[in-house]
């Protein structure tokens, strides 16, 4: 059963978890107002506040904003097959995720939310098409993409881009919900358990491989198992690229533009 407080699992994330399921998401605010959202097969079909249907995009946006400010609200998702006749929207769920992320932004500035990733967690680009993610998130994407292509953390981005760590964490949270980046998992390595401490060191350094993706040969060729060391290595690689990245911003913007519009005409 999917339930909880939107303080720990905000609306965009709930929509992402709902995924392909069909049903009704009910959110009850502390003042006992009931908001509901209907979903079927990755489509958002409509919403209600109390018993009043939400008729247009602007009413929907103000409802999302209202909800993002009531973080003590409780949600529950009820899985049911929905009748197709009760449809006021027929919007890809991911566009509801984008719209609710924009609303969330007004709230997160108060303090660093618990649902943000750890600043040291490394994320990799998924290679998905960014042309629909919306202006604000796309602007961040253009600057951060070269880093995500190799695998990077919020902490490293904060050192390399003129953006505050909190903003970067918010954008990483966003890009992840939009399926633009994923955690860069190392290859799970099995090593045989041993009780002797001296054996331990040799076996560990032998078996700990870092796999951050195909471009990470330079990182992977060094075998430092300690996270601090491996992230320093990564930072060094990025620092050497940093000048080029700044110089090339306009070029990349235009390049992004070109690809983007090619997509538009597909």
């Amino acid at each position: 059963m999917l339930f909880g407080k939107i303080k720990s699992i905000p609306l965009p994330q709930i929509v992402r978890i709902i995924g392909e399921k069909s049903g009704v998401l009910e959110i009850k605010s502390p003042e006992n107002n009931l908001y509901s959202f209907r979903f079927a097969r990755r489509l958002f079909l409509g919403a209600k506040k109390q018993d009043n249907p939400i008729g247009d995009t602007f009413a929907l946006k103000s409802m999302l904003l209202e909800l993002s400010q009531k973080e003590e609200s409780f949600f529950i998702f009820k899985e049911v097959e929905l009748q197709e006749d009760d449809v006021s929207f027929s919007l890809p769920a991911v566009q509801l995720i984008i719209a609710s992320l924009h609303s969330l932004r007004t709230m997160y500035q108060k303090n660093l939310p618990i649902f943000f990733p750890d600043p040291e967690t490394v994320f990799l680009s998924t290679g998905n098409d960014p042309s629909w993610i919306g202006s604000e998130f796309f602007s961040f994407w253009i600057e951060a993409e070269p880093f995500f292509a190799k695998g990077t953390s919020a902490k490293e981005l904060a050192k390399n881009l003129p953006i505050e760590l909190e903003d970067i964490l918010f954008h990483i949270y966003t890009l992840r919900l939009l399926n633009m980046i994923k955690t860069a998992s190392k290859k799970r390595t099995f090593y045989l358990p041993i009780s002797d401490q001296s054996d331990l060191n040799s076996i560990e350094s032998h078996h700990t491989n870092i796999h951050l993706g195909s471009d990470s040969a330079a990182i992977g060729s060094k075998p430092p198992p300690l996270p601090s060391e491996s992230s320093t290595t990564a930072i060094q690689i990025y620092q050497s690229d940093q000048q080029d990245i700044k110089k090339g911003l306009l070029r990349r913007l235009i390049y992004g533009f070109k690809n983007f519009f090619r997509k538009m005409y597909e």
Binding site: D56, P130, W132, F260, M264
Partner: peptide, 27 residues
């Protein structure tokens, strides 16, 4: 943020095009 408000498209996906237009604006 890419939500469709009004359109008079006879072909193409208005949702997708709205989202792309918003992204193009940002770019």
């Amino acid at each position: 943020d890419g939500l469709p408000v009004a359109h008079s498209l006879s072909s193409g996906d208005p949702n997708r095009l709205s989202a792309m237009a918003a992204t193009a604006l940002g770019l």
